[in-house]
Design a protein around this nucleic acid. Structure first.
Lengths: 303, 303
DNA sequence: GGTTGGATGAAGCACTGCTACATTCACCCG
DNA sequence: CGGGTGAATGTAGCAGTGCTTCATCCAACC
């Protein structure tokens, strides 16, 4: 009888493309996955992987077998979900992926709460880019993702993945304390057209939103500096090198040299929780999503 | 992730009723099956078996899990069949169950032929009662059964099991050489109404057929002796203790003290091959059935 | 042509899963 | 009611599996 572990290895290679990535997803070394599949080949007397360039290619037969493996694994996972559901308590491992600012601004509070209330739950956090996290959930690398999107770029959610709103996070304009606008409480887009900007790298939603929104006022924004981390952006603003659009969540207290202005209308990013549809009934999932939603107002108010 | 071996153990217990029977079907000791299920209980933190009298009872949750396991195992088996089908050559283990007279009269020839033409096929023969063999195929203990039935008692074939005719085997009346009828080549039922009979034990088809057929002529047959094995029956006939109705297949050469009379009409039992529907496409199955059918005329002529 | 990214192979080690045997428990029967 | 039987489970031990680490090999890229 075919072995489930070997089928899982083959399926992982078919999903992730390379032996190494499959191994990483399964928590093994590439050598282990390679050996598993070699054994599967011996047992079935069938060639499953062919070397192709630096990587491997699945044979037709391997693809068929991987498709069956997917159905088998789905059945088994469904059975596990049903067992956990019946016991009712969140438990087992929950691999959570989260974008950086929520990882520091929201998740510590949430994880502490979960750990206190559900000792059998083994929640593990990984910081990942929000656009990657959706795919990682779809492929089963993560059990739960906390991601965000903006009005101009809704999160693309593949079939088989479900989502729920956690809350909305506003963004402010950070300016040096001696900036002409620093005295004002509120500003409009038009007021910002001639500034030097400090943004995240191109391709990030934050960056694209800024470009598109300011272009709509008729000016091409001047990007003076780029930094991925909000704290670096704040430091650049503090040094008087430009102004920045920075989300409130995870921003932390501002240094005295920096002032936050409320932009009208307030740019909002929406926080989502995402999970595989098959795992929707896991108490670990439902309870974590509930906790995210319940704690959000509290976290939001403290920003 | 749930382990396939443990699921198979649970499923086997659910099918066979006891840990011991499940172990026998899987080829393990009861202790092994018991340990597997104990581990499954620990992993799922669910009680699966409850002791009930001398045996065990599955909990509701265990029954659900066993049902899922059945689907999983069916998928996996289907994948294995597809792999073998694609390679085209009969191979792997084929557990054959066969009733006694065919086990000596037909199967040696068939198995030798298969072994010569298909070295990768590991065919294993077990002698089993024909009425048991159908059930054993249905429950997956056997891959292929060779059974037989009579016009008065068709073989009950459960859903999920398929069958094909192998051939028809006639039966003769064996009488002592000095019996009044011994000179005749052919006899009719009416000629036999006052004989002392040597039969198989009550409950066997052979016995029941005799009773019913002779009763139809208006006489209650007199059962003088009972013996399960045809050779013993022949020896009893040779000793002049009665006459017997004995199938031709597997009868072997008769001693000089015994004569075979052709009964008109000739009682016929039909030989069947039976297998699980799921395994129908296995070359090991199709080729073995084909071999049975092809060799039958040859074996039949040599009886 | 060295370097990098990836797969595979060999050695070793921990763990799993089996068997054999012992124990426990429920039923049955004298 | 006590001994016997059938069935499950527990224990010790052993073989085999499956992982990791380290080394090797191959293809692509600079």
């Amino acid at each position: 009888m075919l072995d489930l572990g070997r089928l899982r290895a083959l399926h992982a290679v078919s999903v992730h493309g390379t032996v190494g990535a499959a191994a990483a997803a399964l928590g093994y070394t590439p050598s282990a996955v390679s050996q598993q599949i070699a054994k599967l080949e011996r047992e079935t007397r069938t060639t499953l992987l062919e070397r192709s360039g630096r990587g491997v290619r699945l044979t037709d037969e391997a693809r068929r077998l991987a498709a069956t493996a997917e159905r088998v694994l789905a059945l088994v996972e469904e059975a596990e979900v049903r067992l956990e559901e019946r016991r009712g308590q969140p438990e087992g491992r929950l691999r959570i992926g989260c974008f950086p600012s929520a990882a520091r601004g929201l998740m510590p509070r949430v994880l502490a709460d979960l750990a206190r209330r559900h000792p059998a739950l083994d929640a593990r956090l990984t910081e990942v880019d929000p656009h990657l996290s959706v795919d990682l959930v779809g492929r089963g690398v993560l059990d739960l993702a906390v991601a965000h999107d903006w009005d101009i770029a809704a999160l693309p959610v593949p079939p088989g993945v479900e989502q729920a709103v956690v809350g909305d996070d506003g963004c402010d304009i950070l300016v040096p304390r001696d900036h002409p606008l620093a005295a004002r409480e509120r500003v409009r887009r038009e007021d910002l057209s001639r500034e030097r900007w400090i943004t995240q790298p191109p391709g990030t939603v934050c960056h694209d939103w800024l470009i598109r929104t300011l272009r709509a006022t008729g000016y091409e924004p001047l990007i003076a500096h780029q930094a991925e981390e909000n704290h670096t952006q704040v430091a650049l603003v503090a040094a008087g090198l430009g102004i920045a659009l920075v989300p409130r969540l995870g921003r932390g207290p501002l240094p005295p040299e920096v002032a936050a202005l409320r932009l009208e209308p307030v740019p909002v990013r929406r926080l989502w929780a995402l999970w595989r549809a098959g795992a929707a009934r896991r108490p670990a999932i439902t309870e974590t999503v509930r906790t995210l939603q319940e704690l959000w107002p509290e976290v939001s108010a403290a920003r």
